[in-house]
Design a binder for these strands. Structure first.
Lengths: 329, 329
DNA sequence: CTGAAAGCGCTTACAG
DNA sequence: CTGAAAGCGCTTACAG
């Protein structure tokens, strides 16, 4: 492989000068610069980024920690992140925790040892070891989708979004409102979205019935099973609508209802969150909430870049959302 | 940051010994090893991978070049790749060409300068600059989804898959078969899938009508527009079925047909390729072909690992597929 | 405007 | 079994 020394020899200058020409740092005469650049072009020389990183302590790489790689939300976010990062000459080092809390911590350490300039984490839960690891890493970290205490966080507006959806359903007359949530380990999706549902029902003195509530795990199947369980335990006290906190679970629920001969929304209305592509093309089209994931990814990336460049900006920002009313309600 | 020197001092040994203990290379007395390991654990020391990579010329990073990051196929493949790579201690450096041919070439050079141990590329086209760049990089490269001359390639069985789908449709009596393809720049999806369609029609002496053929660009919208154009140009010579080479385009086509009041499959049957999640939940459920993308990703990753370890294995393998018959036909 | 030298944090012959 | 030394390919004060 050609190195900076080779280029220096060929150009008959010191490698110091080559480095300066390459990085536009310090003075290099026009003549020498041209000579060097010509040789660089000719040889196709590319500086070793390992050496560069070892020396400068910057790698031009951002570590991204995903809860699950093959998910529509993740890929939209990564898309947004990549939009802004690749423009700034940064690369993404991708990491997938498979919803495993321990891996989150491991990856933070690993990314740190790879000299990444910053870490973007899509957390699904909040726990002390995670916070400790972030603290210990002592590099810029931005969390998207969850509020991590002491960490620059960009949270979706889960409470309001869920409250709006609940209110809308209630206003449409669906006062017998079932709910499919996820585990409380997840403050954003698990706690906030459920709390808003509960609060809104309470505000109107509507009953919250245990047999109208079920818990899934993000998957379509779990939505299917949750709906089945709600129907079974509710017997002749059936709800008139069901609100699932993710589109995938809503789709699963819809699938089960269809199988059972329910007409949607006449016999049972359904709503989700996420604005998945599928939500638009399924029949009936699903009422849902768009979280603008790609924009959120861009936003998070910019925030991280800001931190890397030591710009002051550690407020907890909120992201926007939009209700999409469709035929399932 | 703690370095190997700090550990060496604390353990009162040379850094050579620390390195040996860390990497299990060469002799280290049990006693010394334990002492070192205790300190490593206590300090949370992690070796700098930049330094390691500079020294050893291996980075433990695999570059992945994607045509489009936020696509179901891509995320499934990356998922599979990550399955096997993360198990072997490798990390993924992700790169998105946004279907831009020039970026493909740039990224190969960039990844090379980052000392990646190998590159996995999901090519969508074949061109000389790309082949040259791969040649010039002189590191292990595996191509998935396309046959690149001179490059270890793992191609889907596009011709046979498309031929099977065409035959199946023909056998069901849909002899007036329309086709939505993509650009011929893409040998696999563009050329092979179309060629199989043409060959099968020819075999049975069935007419191939220009106004039954349209070209899209992978997107749902383009399928919608393609279907519209077919209907308009066909006037009273309408096809009885349409075969789109991707699920997304099939979904778009279905959307347009539904809008126009077509009953599916009674008035017009539809088939796609890809086995997207959506294909299963859309109404009517879409007949399609599963390419086992995740397994393909695993397979490609293993192939690449094999090349990195200098195992002999540069044949062009073929991947399998499976027809999924559903209600849209 | 240019170069010699030191050093980033590792690993690996080589010598003992 | 252990260590001193060289070197991977860069950048950056420092000196001229």
């Amino acid at each position: 492989m050609t190195t900076i020394n080779d280029i220096a020899k060929m150009a008959d200058v010191s490698r110091t000068t080559v480095s300066r020409a390459l990085n536009d740092s310090g003075y290099v005469s026009e003549e020498v610069r041209n000579k060097i650049m010509a040789i660089v072009k000719e040889t196709g020389y590319m500086p070793s980024l390992s050496a560069k990183s070892l020396r400068t302590k910057r790698s031009g790489v951002i570590g991204v920690i995903l809860p699950k790689i093959s998910t529509e939300t993740s890929s939209r976010v990564v898309n947004g992140v990549n939009d802004v990062l690749s423009n700034e000459g940064f690369q993404i080092l991708l990491t997938d925790t498979e919803l495993n809390k321990q891996k989150e911590v491991e990856y933070i350490r690993l990314l740190k040892s790879r000299h990444v300039d910053g870490i973007l984490i899509l957390a699904t839960n909040v726990n002390q070891p995670l916070l400790d690891a972030i603290q210990a890493a002592a590099i810029p970290v931005v969390c998207l989708g969850q509020k991590l205490p002491g960490v620059t966080s960009l949270a979706y507006n889960d409470y309001d979004a869920s409250a709006d959806m609940t209110t809308m359903l209630l206003n449409k007359g669906y006062t017998r409102l079932a709910f499919i949530g996820i585990s409380n380990d997840d403050p954003a999706v698990g706690q906030l979205r459920e709390q808003a549902y509960l609060d809104k029902l309470k505000e109107r003195n509507l009953p919250v019935k245990d047999h109208w509530m079920a818990v899934g795990d993000f998957s379509i199947d779990s939505g299917y099973e949750a709906m089945k369980s709600i129907l079974h335990t509710s017997k002749d006290d059936l709800p008139s609508a069901v609100f699932a906190v993710t589109d995938r679970m809503a789709v699963g629920a819809m699938e089960y209802l269809k199988e059972q001969g329910f007409r949607i929304p006449a016999d049972m209305a359904i709503a989700g969150i996420g604005a998945s592509v599928m939500s638009k093309y399924i029949t009936p089209a699903l009422t849902t909430i768009d979280y603008y994931n790609q924009e959120a990814g861009q936003h998070a990336a910019r925030l991280l870049l800001g931190k890397i460049n030591h710009e002051q900006n550690s407020e907890k920002l909120k992201l926007s959302y939009r209700l999409i009313l469709r035929d399932s309600v």
